[in-house]
Nucleic acid binder design. Sequence first.
DNA 1: TTACAATATTGCAATTTTACGATTGATTGG
DNA 2: CCAATCAATCGTAAAATTGCAATATTGTAA
Lengths: 108, 108
Amino acid sequence: MGLTRSEIFTEEQNRLATMLKALAHPARIAILQQIIKANACICGQLVDELGLAQATISQHLKELKNAGIIQGTIEGVTVCYCIEPKAWKLLQKDLSIFFKSFDVKNCC
Amino acid sequence: MGLTRSEIFTEEQNRLATMLKALAHPARIAILQQIIKANACICGQLVDELGLAQATISQHLKELKNAGIIQGTIEGVTVCYCIEPKAWKLLQKDLSIFFKSFDVKNCC
DNA sequence: TTACAATATTGCAATTTTACGATTGATTGG
DNA sequence: CCAATCAATCGTAAAATTGCAATATTGTAA
């Protein structure tokens, strides 16, 4: 079919998967690293740094914004993007819990 | 186009994105949670627990296996799946570093 | 060997993702 | 107001993802 059957999973499973999907692209990882490094970044800068078209970068920024990971502030002609600390910390915590839930035991 | 331009990103960015993509589906989150909870899990069990077809579960297991996150051991007729500790710990560490790289500062 | 059970694989349709050119919208400078 | 600049959106094409029925494969038991 091609559409995820979200209705059979828990709210938490869907939420975590959605956030991970937002991160699951090298361009979006690169964008986040750049934003973190520069502590705020404008779209044009990203277009210069990464080798992608402006429309493509804008689309990736939109996905990160939709997921709530970044926020954009209009500053005249440009838009300043930065990390949304609350969402960042929450995802960090959720992932930390998820990864810690596995403890190595004797297995098959 | 529809294909990720991996060649313009670093090895690290691509690797992290690939691993995140493997996790970025509620069914695969659910499968991992179940494997962790049961400390090993057979495919049939997962088909019963989650509400997906056997072929679909098998496909998700294959993706997790391809990413190196789980490993499957054939035990007669059944296959026992469990977490691959090395890959798990490595991803945990990489994500931890990634998330810690952001420190809240005054921004726009 | 034959039958059965558990998984894997194949083939297909619907949907989503990725990428980009072209265009539009918004803001500033002259 | 008009031109220039930056970013968002639209439209489109190619490719990847999701899901499942049908089938194949593999190992066990009779």
